[in-house]
Design a protein around this nucleic acid. Structure first.
Lengths: 343, 343
DNA sequence: TAGGTTTTCGTAAACGATTACGGAGATTGT
DNA sequence: ACAATCTCCGTAATCGTTTACGAAAACCTA
């Protein structure tokens, strides 16, 4: 393996000069720099990451912590892959690698992250699937590791995050349904301790109030964020004596299950029950009737996350900003037929 | 940050002894070892990864190279997440981290991998989406990096790989269709230079021969491995004067597009055209009529990949085997209604 | 008890890169 | 011509950990 030593003796200069030449330091003759650069390309030299990290005290890597669902049951489809694409692109421009840190669902995310952090495996981290009271936040703050969260937390403390604009989604969905005459609108939220459920629930309640609609606690339906969860939402709806005329869902997989349950009951979405989904996934186009839902660019979301993270890293003084980025990511309505009915 | 130095001075012993105690070396008093372990836990010590990597010449990380499709168009959904779950579990048992290396589709995978390898970012790699003549193989061999491929390559050279049992799938699919009287069976394969297409195509031709069925080159349909690709497969089929009575697909997303195209033409899968899909994804259960396809455990696949990789790593002498693992992963038929018709 | 063996631990040299420091030439100023 | 300045580069320390080597102490054997 060719290191800086071999490069230096090949050029018959000192390793210090080689290093300076490669790192763009000013105190090196331009003629020498050119020779070094050429030799490096010729010999296929690249700095050893371990040596560099040790000396610099930084790894040039940021971690993206996701929970790797052990079996394919769950909701997340191409979501993370899309975000990862945006992240890598934006980070690569600053010579940062992305390290995906998949936390098994059988392990406590806090403990997993602690192991990563204390070993100094990455310079900064992105956490996802944030909980209402997420212990990872104080951990990262105490360790002084720059971070950003994909998803708000419940805490009042300030930290950088990017989240989907649930308020906007809830407002658009409810306003649209209200305009069609719906007065009894239900919402399905995930039953896990993930913060998303709370946020979406609150946004929904606010949207109801803004549209002058009454709020019935029974209309908040908790379910697993999976296809089967959507099926159980159908069960719940069908069992209600005072059945809502419309329902708003999170996760496209829920929509699939609900469609199936309705179909079994001889009901048609958009005719017997207005359905508004959340994120437009690859399935939404196929569902019949077409699902009214919301669209976003996963690539842009990843880019936005990267920018927000870089702004928290003192190692990038030109991008650094004192106040943490807190950004709601807009989603655009995709009109379908699943909420076509008027009432 | 607490390092081995602080730990040593806190215990008033030398750093050498601390290191030996932590690494389970025999030449340290058990009483001393216990004290060191306790102090390490108390002070929250964990070895700095950069220092350790530099000294050991190994990073304790294996890379999993995937291509991160820039936009959500493409096929891969929960596939990688599932495999990652299996990988992390199996690797963690040997104190190995998994680093996901997402290669942007705009970059040459070979160049991307070279940058990773030359910087010694990982000890071993798993490559996926192998091409027929994959330049990454000689790169890794030359660099002496242990690796395993998820997907066979076309080359005759020996290296470790795990691949799906396309032969088994093709044979089961064709035999099943032949038993129902089908004589004109088409197959849709991806049009990219990924090796999967060639393998699947060959397996299909073999299966035809084994079942005494004629082979018509027109019945090999190339398409993008996406929902839209499936739609174009439908276009191609409908435009044929001598239309096949059955079609076998790869990728579940293709099935969705094909269903949509057939529906637009007023045709029903399983009645007007027998459809056999490939991998059972979260969507297959929902398609109506239910898609006949094949099932596998992504978790087990990940575990198998990890085992095959460990067997190539000299750093694990007890697992090391001279001959590289080459394993076809079986898939189990999931009976649906999409190929119910007889002819 | 002398000599040999074993146990336990401290010392110091690596690993590969970065960078503060200082020195040798070359250049400029008076 | 002498000093001051500037340009360029070599030397060596350093990051945190591992490990070969040797030494001290303890233990055994005859």
């Amino acid at each position: 393996m060719v290191g800086i030593r071999r490069l230096a003796q090949h050029l018959d200069i000192s390793i210090g000069t080689v290093s300076r030449a490669l790192n763009g330091r000013p105190d090196v003759n331009e003629e020498t720099r050119k020779r070094v650069l050429e030799a490096a390309a010729e010999l296929g030299y690249a700095p050893n990451q371990a040596g560099r990290s040790l000396r610099r005290g930084a790894t040039s890597a940021v971690g993206f912590m996701i929970e790797s669902n052990d079996e394919s049951e769950s909701n997340s489809d191409n979501f993370f892959l899309g975000v990862i694409g945006g992240l890598t692109g934006a980070l690569a421009q600053h010579n940062l690698d992305l390290v995906v840190l998949p936390c098994s669902t059988s392990e406590d995310p806090h403990d997993y992250l602690q192991r990563i952090v204390v070993r100094r495996l990455v310079d900064a981290v992105i956490i996802s699937a944030t909980q209402r009271n997420d212990r990872r936040i104080p951990l990262l703050k105490k360790a002084g590791i720059p971070f950003i969260a994909l998803g708000r937390t419940g805490g009042a403390d300030q930290h950088a995050w990017v989240d989907l604009d649930f308020e906007g989604v809830a407002h658009k969905a409810v306003a649209r349904l209200a305009a069609k005459g719906h007065k009894q609108i239900a919402v399905a939220v995930p039953d896990s301790d993930i913060n998303l459920g709370h946020v979406f629930r609150n946004a929904f309640v606010d949207a109801l109030a803004q549209n002058g609609l009454p709020f019935d606690p029974d209309f908040i339906i908790c379910a697993k964020s999976s296809e089967h969860g959507g099926y159980t939402v159908g069960d719940t709806l069908l069992a209600m004596k005072n059945r809502p005329t419309a329902v708003v869902l999170v996760y496209e997989m829920m929509a699939i299950g609900l469609y199936r349950r309705l179909s079994e009951a001889g009901l048609v979405p958009g005719r017997d029950l207005a359905v508004v989904g959340f994120r437009e996934g690859p399935l939404a186009r196929f569902l019949s009737p077409a699902l009214t839902c919301f669209r976003m660019s996963l690539l842009d979301l990843g880019t936005g996350l990267a920018e927000g993270l870089l702004a928290t890293m003192p190692a990038f003084p030109d991008l650094y900003r004192a106040e943490p980025v807190q950004k709601l990511w807009p989603m655009e309505l995709v009109e379908g037929e699943s909420d076509a009915m008027e009432v």
